[in-house]
């Protein structure tokens, strides 16, 4: 420094000072972009999960009859039914709402948990267990195509049921016969924009909960016939009774 000042006198003092400050300013600038972008992505993901859950909760599903089991609870089909939007369509709509961001790296799981009749006779095809939760879960990728990956909880829809019912009645979100919740969990692998501040990819996750608009005691599963044993559809039965499957 003394050598430099001897050589340059008062020259280039501001330039040298700027050279010292510039890297810090640049980091401030890039870091501002990075953090705002992360926050923005998180907010968009939250809005995505919320609007998806709300849209699913508004779908009225006609009576579905599979393997002798007639039910009017909320298994919104994956594909469209005529002009009634299915899950894939609603997911695509929610992705429209992400604009102008692309949905790259997005995975979304949507599950429905309904409390069915407390003690239906086993002969009717439903286990005679109080507080039986009937559920489905569908997992989708960024293109809204269904995948096998389960992202609500560790073990598929069992995780959704655990989330819906909590560890005890006080925390349960399903409070009575016919009550329902719809859970949407959206995850996004966020790669970072610059990689300066966030050196590793972050996984952002947002969960949204809605209640099926048509949930009521009269809309729960109505069993009209005994399903075939080892049915691969909504229920499967064994000698010990019938349990609901994780299926759509």
């Amino acid at each position: 420094m003394r050598v430099a000042s001897r050589r340059l006198g008062n020259r280039a003092i501001a330039a040298v000072e700027f050279a010292i400050c510039a890297p810090m300013l640049l980091i401030l600038f890039l870091g501002t972009i990075e953090i705002l972008m992360l926050y923005r992505t998180e907010a968009k993901l939250d809005a995505f999960a919320g609007s998806f859950a709300q849209m699913v909760s508004l779908q009225e599903v006609a009576t579905v009859s599979t393997a002798g089991v007639t039910q009017t609870h909320s298994p919104v089909p994956t594909a469209n039914t005529g002009t009634t939007p299915g899950l894939t369509d609603l997911c695509a709509g929610a992705v429209y709402g992400l604009q102008p961001f692309p949905p790259n790296g997005l995975t979304v799981a949507v599950a429905s948990v309904t409390e069915t009749a407390a003690a239906q006779p086993a002969s009717q095809g439903v286990a005679a267990t109080p507080a039986l939760y009937d559920e489905w879960e569908v997992d989708m990728n960024s293109a809204c195509a269904t995948t096998g990956a389960q992202t609500i909880g560790a073990t598929g829809s069992a995780g959704a049921v655990a989330l819906a019912t909590g560890s005890g009645a006080a925390t349960s979100m399903v409070q009575g016969l016919g009550d329902n919740i719809i859970i949407v969990r959206a995850s996004l692998q966020y790669p970072g924009v610059i990689g300066l501040i966030l050196s590793s990819a972050q996984t952002l996750t947002q969960t949204a909960i809605a209640r099926w608009r048509y949930a009521s005691a009269s809309n729960v599963t109505n069993v009209t016939a005994t399903p075939a044993p080892s049915s691969t559809l909504e229920f499967s039965c064994s000698g010990a009774g019938c349990v609901s499957n994780d299926g759509v």
């Binding site: 705002l36 609007s51 429209y96």
Partner: peptide, 21 residues
Amino acid sequence: SLVTLNGTPSIVSATATVAEP
């Protein structure tokens, strides 16, 4: 486009919903 963080000089907001039946 850098300031708005979305590639255009406009602030953009989009939302998808279903009109209540």
